[in-house]
Design a protein around this nucleic acid. Structure first.
Lengths: 156, 156
DNA sequence: GTCGCTATTGCACTCAGGTCGCATCAGCGC
DNA sequence: GCGCTGATGCGACCTGAGTGCAATAGCGAC
């Protein structure tokens, strides 16, 4: 399952705000500041929207055509262990990646596919209820909540 | 994407409580009551827990070895269109299927993998908030909400 | 500056879950 | 019991993701 771990987990709270900071974190953990890693981080930091691993790979190859997709997958996983990025499942289809520092929950319309970013506080009450009643601490960021958007409900 | 539709959607509310009822619904929609269909429905109705498509196929082949896995997939999809079953994503890994009549939301522990069935009412307040603020109507059944269970939180 | 250890990479391959095309089979309305 | 056509079985295929391994290249030590 897991290859020799070059970059031990940093746990939550290791959020960084620039490529150089992320690279410094990588080196502090015994990793190396390689060209592919820098390009991948560049792409992640300049992304204005969630990208699938494939889209990241595509964007990376525009800047550095020699970087392989498996390198992208491996580094995305490394960056996750470091707490720099998180992946999110927006319904079916491939997972998307975003910087941990801007992570937030999503609502996804099952009809039209529209993605709505959830304000941070809408899950607060659910989180309290669930923790009190089930002892369960929710992480609404990892999987989107599906449903129907206002427009699609109006059509029905 | 879609093959010729033999069984047009029945929409929500077409929940049935027996194999024969489901088969009658199939026939009422112009479908045929075939042997594979009956076996698949049998398995679904006798399942006491969520099953992946592969598990359904396995259970089907115990009873009728000649039924192909792609037939299982196709029928699972048909039954969904009819509103007889729903599929649920419990975190990563394959989707699981359950009867629509017993569908409910889930909390899944990211650490130990424990699945907790959500009482129907815990999402009520979130549903109201989201509908009021975003016009979005949530469907908490389709994707499990991830997080950490009480036991795993205690360990940390 | 350069040496050498070893983390990282590129490549080719594998894997799982799921879908599709098509010839054949078999419900079921007549 | 005929025949139309929906359903099935089979195998190929697809997408997203992960792995094994030899070659490459950071970077700490000297």
């Amino acid at each position: 399952m897991s290859r020799p771990i070059a970059l031990p987990g940093a746990g939550p709270g290791a959020k960084v705000s620039s490529v150089d900071e992320a690279l410094a974190l990588v080196r502090a953990r015994g990793g190396r500041a390689t060209a592919p890693r820098r390009v991948i981080l560049d792409v992640l930091f300049s992304a204005s929207w969630h990208m699938t691993a494939e889209e990241v790979a595509e964007a990376v190859q525009v800047r550095a055509p020699e970087v392989n997709i498996s390198t992208v997958y491996r580094n995305l996983e490394d960056m996750q262990r470091l707490g720099v990025v998180v992946h999110t499942h927006l319904g079916h289809g491939p997972a998307t990646y975003q910087l941990a520092s801007v992570a937030h929950a999503h609502f996804l319309c099952e009809v039209c596919g529209a993605t709505i970013e959830a304000p941070d506080d809408v899950f607060a009450s659910l989180a309290r209820t669930v923790k009190a009643r089930l002892g369960f601490s929710i992480d609404p960021v990892h999987f989107a909540m599906l449903g129907r958007c206002a427009a699609c409900r109006a059509h029905e």
